[in-house]
Amino acid sequence: MSMSITLGREDIVRLCERIEGAQTRAYAIPKLTDEYPQMTIGDGYAVQLELRKRFLAAGHKQVGWKAGLTSKAKMIQMGVSVPSIGFLTDRMARPESSAIKTSDLVHPRVECEVAFVMKKTLRGPNCTLQDVMDATDYVLPAVEIIDSRFSGFKFDLESVVADNGSSARFVGGGRARYVEDIDLRTLGVVMEKNGEIVTMGASAAVLGHPAEAIAMLVNILGELGEELPAGSFVMSGGITEAVAVKPGDSIVARFQDLGSVSMRFID
């Protein structure tokens, strides 16, 4: 993966403003590579960093990170061999069992994930699954509400990275557990929409083990010259396929050993 930056400062700011506008005013834009076909993944992360700086300058607080494109199926679909990462802020957090507005989102979808809360700082390169396990305070179940700002969810890795990995909202909840008390590889997950099972799987769907996704995230951060600080909330990527939601929908994600997370969607 090339982390080299080929775009000039002006272009990065221009693309960042385009993404920021689409995110804050909830409208779809064409993927960035339509205009910048030479754009690299490094450029995508440069745009994401610019976006993060703007949000932080506006008073948002960063709470952690998310890994995306972590299932084999999604990686093959995207033609990539590494996950993407995005940052998470307090403004994206929604409480468990709450009503989540969709009018400020473009085309939201939900996925079930295992989330990690870190007690030690991790740095790449060479971060391993075991390093992640040792640095984890606890895990909890989470639902991520992703929302690509690109028309028809059509994008490539460069564009989705710039769009902060489609991050939009997230809900953590259920029951916190120590990693040593459960088998993180075989956790079963069921997602119900309006009382009906819509998708299901087991946590190994995420790179064979969700902690593997966190290790890869730490290594990507390392390539970007950053670390994963203690206290971070990190989502390891969708176990289940992303399910579209609209106002009136009610979602319950049930996790083996971790309880459940629920929410409903309103206009």
């Binding site: 084999k72 299901m200 799987g201 087991a202």
Partner: peptide, 21 residues
Amino acid sequence: TLAGMVLEKNGELFSTGVGAA
């Protein structure tokens, strides 16, 4: 109901499921 099912073929993940399926 919620016990995960991980199926591996020749050492590689083949598919995952859950009792609720």
